[in-house]
Amino acid sequence: MSDYNFAYLDEQTKRMIRRAILKGLAVPGYQVPFASREMPMPYGWGTGGVQVSAATLTPEDRFKVIDQGADDTTNAVSIRKFFERTAGVEVTEETEAATIIQTRHRIPEAPLSEDQILVYQVPIPEPLRFLEPRETETRKMHSLEEYGLMHVKLYEDISQHGAIATAYAYPVKVEGRYVMDPSPIPKFDNPKLADCPAIQLFGAGREQRIYALPPYSDVVSLDFEDHPFEASKADHPCDLCGARDSYLDEVITDDRGGRMFVCSDTDYCRTRQAQGHLGAQLAAKQEGAA
């Protein structure tokens, strides 16, 4: 790999991506087209996030990669290794120690700081795509700020199910102008998008789009007065660390209906356990061992 440039991409490609990032920051929530390159990993596996990270990394950075909130999922491991090798950056699993965090599907639980950059991997950047498959049409809708179709869709959910039936990739409106796809994060994470001290960058490689949220941006999840947005999660504490404020994965433990709930953010859970917080199942296990 040593034959490749710092952070893999050639300088001209990085410049092109950097220009797109700056325009994205200048027009928060607007999807900037960019000439996404073919990366040595498949489309759909984080090529957008990887290109944004590659254009953003400096040798001084500490880089963290999570997938589903976890540092040890195979794709997170693979992307982390890629940058260790091509950019020689230090890597970390600690949210607070990281300067750039590349993520797929989650926002870390620990509050982010001004010195951090969160890079999202985005599969379908267009929030209107599932209502209107044509790019030529959705581009017009954004330009005219014509978001009625989205409200109609959400309202149809309410009339059919009594609630908005979107659980992840829940659309938001940025600075009162652009409707934006926050990437497939659970809607539990949506409130963390707003007023965030960190820079948030979104990269969609296959769809060739970059967009951004500057720090402290105004980000509102779409809803209705009589059906306000609700950030929901499993109604349990974490069985390992006891956290009540974190997003939980449900893990099936046997074939007799046994299950447990654990933090999806592995660093958050580990940190809490190290601080002495104990969840019900971990406590029971330790008691059993004693």
Partner: peptide
């Protein structure tokens, strides 16, 4: 086909966070 196969095959990556959010929603509904 490189775009298509990448996106098609990416659905074998873990999606359990999103699935969990749908699970909760379906249970609630």
């Amino acid at each position: 086909n490189i775009q298509a196969t990448g996106f098609l095959e990416h659905i074998k990556l873990p999606h359990y966070v999103d699935f969990q959010s749908e699970l909760e929603l379906v249970r609630k509904l």
